[in-house]
Design a protein around this nucleic acid. Structure first.
Lengths: 362, 362
DNA sequence: TTGAAAGCGCTAACAT
DNA sequence: ATGTTAGCGCTTTCAA
């Protein structure tokens, strides 16, 4: 044998130090060094120290892949945002998904799992090469085959409630219906009688739930519906939808709305500005609630009331569920419902009342 | 032998189908099936088809970890944003880093590398377990030891120019000095004579470069400096810094600035609003340029001129460099300088001139 | 054209 | 208390 390294790439200048190298150098066996380094086995303190010292001196770094192979799992989880299949990488520009992504990565890492970013609408080419223990699919579009593909590949999936009941799939969701009711109830209490809804034209579970809840609420309160759908995501289309909502329409009997519930993601300052352009003074003529995680809502005048979907809580609940399933073998499909939080600020309080915060009942 | 599976986790209900299972089922050897599936070797079409068909029928999925071990690399790269070491996961809330991150993941994936999200200021505990072929460190803080740690672990690092010359480190950077000059020149051409600078209190290479370039430019033009540093990142502190800049100070001889160059990240609508609150009409009394990737800049009135740091180009250049180094063994430290782009809009054009876009010379 | 066997680097069961 | 050895699942010589 001329060279002990077979496969692999054009060898680096200095080949990497392996466990066996350390063992030979220290005059010990692989087992002993491995046990010394991992704190397992029963070794004399001297031997343990010698092994550790030799490893340190030689700059030994265990080969993660070999460990993973041995361990049978890679502690790697995929992360996909299903919305916007055609623009797969724009999700990070949404404050909600930015936070969800950050919180997911942080929580997962704290539990020993690393997160890899994957594109929506994947043709499985991307993740087939990766040793994924599970995949988080945030807000899958209704027609995205990715969940099916993953389940077919026997990879556990963590997603929203749309996967409920599928074997191998688990879910975390926000209580969208409760959130909508809490927001509309709040507007009602503040005197709003013609609340308009602006929503994206999305196939996401959350958004259809929002629409249904708005519909039901309006029926209950004997209020006529006034829904405007944004033609596309993004500030431009959403602001235009806001403007359409503000001028009113046949459904409102020619009357302008007295409150706006914006569920499509848009910059709060821009929404406020649109209201001003159309002659509204907020909150005097128009109460405003935006579903948003955008921190600029705090810095406008008046500050904008937001319904927070609590991405941090969603991420945390999701990863906790994932760890439970992966490590304690909860094989039954399971789910968690996370409460939202209405953060009431000046934009939705009629009489200059003091700010307060309420959590809707769960 | 009672059970052929030794290590590993509490076994799943159905153990995974391995190559050897397919081989046995098809009455072939591992070698043949492997070659059939990978399109390698010289096999008769019938045998190849039989192997493929059997694999498909059994739902065979190759074990990614085993392949990686064999291949000697995992095609996995780490991604760290060095800024904000104390709030390691907030970077995604910045439009610049959101885009940089998305573009990095997208480009890397297109080249066959997956990206894992890592926290800044890592004590190496997180990534030691991961088979990383390389790590991208975006905008490292000057005192972050992570670059040193990675290089000590012989993991190639791709970062900004601050790592220039270090063996194993490669860089991509934007031409910050040219960008500042282009912006200030533009303001000068539009008549500004007292341009104020708002910058974060950051140890990032980019921001110290910006300050130096501003300093030099002011000297060249015989203009007095007026720099305000935001106490912290985030819209609140930056807007306060903007307000401080707007009222002027001793350095300006009591005069208010006639232009504002905001390098700290803030929401353009909020900056504009702050100017209005202080009695400026933009662009009549104040020319405004923000370093920002925030798309809301397009939707204000007037639209805000931005200096784009072109995160997409930075990411692309970085990944291309990474692939070149990893796959073609460019061992010499190397670097790429990416041009910025001043996107001129109404907020910095004095006489209602038509909009145009310029690219500074590189 | 196909198959047997070695080996990637590591851990753990089983000797000694 | 320490060492020997098998084996994680795959790819790739090399021999038949």
């Amino acid at each position: 044998m001329t060279d002990s390294r077979h496969g692999g790439q054009p060898s680096s200048p200095t080949p990497r130090v392996r466990l066996v190298d350390v063992a030979r150098e220290a005059g010990l066996s692989k087992t002993t060094v491995s046990a010394a380094l991992n704190g397992t086995g029963r070794l004399s303190p001297e031997v343990r120290e010698k092994a550790r010292e030799t490893a340190r001196r030689m700059g030994y770094r265990p080969n993660a892949t070999a460990r993973q192979l041995r361990a049978g799992r890679a502690r790697l989880i995929g992360y996909v945002v299903g919305e916007l299949v055609d623009a797969p990488w724009t999700f990070l520009e949404s404050p909600y998904f930015a936070r969800l992504t950050g919180a997911t990565a942080a929580t997962a890492l704290a539990r020993g799992y690393a997160v890899v970013l994957l594109p929506a609408g994947s043709l499985q080419r991307e993740w087939a090469e990766l040793p994924l223990d599970a995949v988080v699919v945030a807000d899958p579009a209704a027609d995205d085959p990715i969940v099916e593909e993953l389940l077919a590949a026997r990879i556990p999936v963590f997603s929203d409630r749309s996967v409920e009941g599928r074997p191998g799939a688990h879910w975390v969701d926000v209580d969208g219906a409760a959130a909508v009711r809490a927001s509309l109830d709040h507007l009602w209490e503040q005197g709003a009688r013609r609340p308009a809804l602006v929503t994206p034209d999305s196939t996401t579970r959350f958004h259809s739930g929002v629409f249904a809840a708005y519909h039901a609420w309006c029926a209950e309160h004997g209020v006529s519906e006034w829904v405007v759908r944004a033609a596309a995501p993004g500030n431009g289309p959403v602001v235009r939808a806001v403007e359409t909502a503000l001028v009113g329409g046949p459904e409102t009997g020619g009357e302008r709305p007295d409150a706006l519930f914006v569920v499509a993601e848009a910059s709060p300052p821009l929404v406020l500005e649109a209201a001003r352009r159309h002659g509204y003074e907020v909150p005097r003529d128009l109460l405003l609630v935006c579903v948003s995680e955008d921190v600029t809502a705090l810095h406008t005048d008046p500050a904008v009331t937001t319904l927070s979907l609590r991405p941090h809580d969603v991420a945390q609940a999701g990863i906790e569920l994932l760890v439970a399933v992966l490590e304690h073998g909860h094989l039954q499909p399971s789910g968690v419902l996370v409460p939202t939080e209405l953060e009431v600020r000046a934009s939705s309080v009629r009489h200059g009342q003091t700010e307060w915060t309420s959590r809707p009942p769960t």
